[in-house]
């Protein structure tokens, strides 16, 4: 083996170990009875998982989180895809402005945003503080940058402007051009943004905790609260979370790929 290749292989192995070992150990701990005197656990049990999964609070929290994430992302797609399409294709001079607005959430730390949002929405015409809507609103804003980038890049990649021009010259209305030509071609790219937003929202803790906390307990908040009870339980929770996100990502990737193949 050449020295260069050896180097590459060892670097990759090291990185994989670095990423994988903590996970493996966490998994071991989550199925261990006792593990502090010995190199490997003294016994194995699924009790921690049973305890976690039999808690009705978990399932409720899971459904809440799913609702909040799916609702937010669907809302984001419905609003942002047409908006970005219209701005990119018909009002390109506004593109800079839209980009600036959409990128703002990047610059604002979660805690600051949470405090500001609570103060603004605790009274006045839109008193949604403490309801699920404030979380959905905040989540909508925080995934804007990712949705924007993904959608705009897909529009660029498929050369949406030329496609629309071609479709219009062939007698399509603007809406027909969007529906028959642009939308099917940007779907794979949009799915990538959706995947990213999903994993971001699933792991988001600061806003969920500060904006709504125990009033509408989301999965993230529930898990954090239970972590204090037992190390083994919290390991089980981490593994559970990891598997959940893995499955979600897998599903979305697969979906995205089949959408792409349909197009290709």
């Amino acid at each position: 083996m050449k020295a260069g290749k050896l180097f590459h292989v060892s670097v990759v192995t090291l990185v994989m170990l670095y990423l994988f070992v903590p996970l493996a150990v966490t998994f071991l701990y989550s199925i261990a009875t006792d593990w502090y005197r010995t190199f490997l656990p003294e016994g194995y049990t699924l009790n921690w998982y049973r305890e976690m999964l039999t808690d009705p609070r978990l399932l409720e929290a899971l459904w809440r989180t799913l609702f909040v994430t799916v609702f937010t992302i669907v809302l984001s797609i419905l609003l942002m895809v047409p908006t970005i399409f219209i701005v990119t294709v018909y009002f390109s001079k506004w593109e800079r402005l839209l980009q600036a607005i959409v990128m703002l959430p990047y610059a604002i730390p979660g805690v600051v945003a949470a405090v500001g949002l609570i103060r603004i929405y605790s009274d006045g015409p839109l008193a949604i503080s403490g309801t699920v809507w404030i979380v959905i609103g905040a989540y909508f804003i925080s995934i804007l940058p990712f949705m924007y980038q993904g959608i705009r890049n897909s529009l660029r990649t498929v050369d949406a402007i030329t496609l629309v021009d071609a479709a219009e010259l062939l007698g399509a209305s603007r809406i027909q051009a969007f529906r028959h030509v642009v939308l099917p071609n940007i779907m794979p790219g949009v799915m990538a943004s959706v995947l990213l937003s999903f994993s971001i929202l699933f792991g988001e803790f600061v806003l969920a905790n500060l904006l709504i906390g125990g009033q509408y307990e989301l999965l993230q908040v529930y898990l954090m609260r239970r972590m204090d009870e037992s190390g083994h339980l919290s390991s089980a929770i981490v593994v559970f979370y990891f598997v959940l996100i893995l499955i979600l990502s897998g599903l979305i990737l697969k979906f995205g790929r089949s959408a792409k193949e349909e197009n290709a």
Binding site: V158, D159, T162, L163, D165, A166, A167, E168, L169, L170, G171, A172, S173, H180, V181, P184, N185, E262, N263, A264
Partner: peptide, 19 residues
């Protein structure tokens, strides 16, 4: 409007619909 002109155009980048 473009669609009412009865004019056809072929673009340099083809502009075919990939789907």
């Amino acid at each position: 409007k473009p669609k009412d002109r009865e004019i056809g155009m072929v673009f340099q980048s083809y502009g075919l619909f990939p789907n």
